[in-house]
Simulated scan of single mutants.
Amino acid sequence: MSLVETYAPHLPYLRRFSRALTGSQSEGDTYVRTALEALVAGDIVLEGDLSPKIALYQMFLTIWSTTGAKLEADREDEAVPAKRVRKLPPTSRQAFLLNALEGMTPADIAKVMNIAPEYADTLLAEAESDIEKELRTNVLIIEDEPIIAADIEGLVEDLGHSVDNIAATHKDAVSAVSEKKPGLILADVQLADGSSGIEAVEEITKTLNVPVIFITAFPERLLTGDKPEPAYLISKPFKPGNVKAAISQALFFHDA
């Protein structure tokens, strides 16, 4: 099988990875092209005992690391999530993107980066910690059940965030936002006085750009297909891990 047949299926994903790593489409594509030219010219040899994808990414990072790759200054037109990634130290950034973007396990990351598996775990933990610090914010919980609200508050605080208000009605939620703007909203759909968490969120987000996660026993009320639907929707009863993952993702990918 030729080089093209072997590695071509992985090139679109390598370009995606390279663009995320460098923060630039043109710069990322240049690194991929340089790596491929070195491969074709025989200047670099791929390890034959690795899968094609692992070997290709390993070769690419070798080229990237030895050409003086550095963290670039923030670009005015760069999306906020991309800026957050590029604030990570280079090795942590590589490990984070290989895991989050490419779905690689710590064992695969260790092979790609030529490091011990234990160090891959360490880099991922450091990246997660750095991102959590970067994302730390204040939260508004819109929930009418005190026990559920307390559970959500505990999950939020476990991640290092602070809860400013817990609102049980539409009116309370709007009032809470007027007192202090939240960086994240977690909202139920049906509230204590019969009011709607959906309508409360719609009113709030008319003037405030904030990520929202709905946690509800009535997901069908939001998943109608008739209008834009929420990106983050968790059904009750919820699993703590799902809520924590949704919080991290909503904050990380929100383009403030």
Results as ranks from 00 to 15, higher is better:
M1A: 11
T6E: 15
L14Q: 07
R16D: 13
L21R: 15
T22N: 11
G28Y: 09
T30I: 09
V32G: 10
V32R: 05
L36H: 08
E37N: 05
A38F: 14
L39P: 03
L46H: 03
G48Y: 03
S51C: 01
L56I: 01
L56A: 04
Y57M: 09
I63R: 12
I63Y: 15
A69G: 12
K70H: 14
L71Y: 12
A82M: 11
M104W: 04
D108G: 03
V112C: 12
I115S: 07
Y119E: 15
A120I: 06
A120K: 07
T122I: 05
A125N: 12
E134T: 09
L140R: 00
L140D: 07
I142D: 13
E143H: 08
G154T: 13
L155I: 07
L159Q: 03
G160D: 14
I166F: 10
A168C: 07
H170I: 04
V174N: 04
A176M: 04
S178N: 13
L186R: 04
A187L: 01
D188H: 01
A192V: 01
D193K: 04
S195M: 08
G197S: 02
E203I: 11
I204Y: 09
K206W: 15
L208W: 13
P211E: 02
V212A: 07
I213D: 02
T216R: 04
L222Q: 06
L223F: 09
L223R: 10
G241D: 12
K244D: 10
I247E: 09
H254V: 01
D255W: 09
A256I: 05
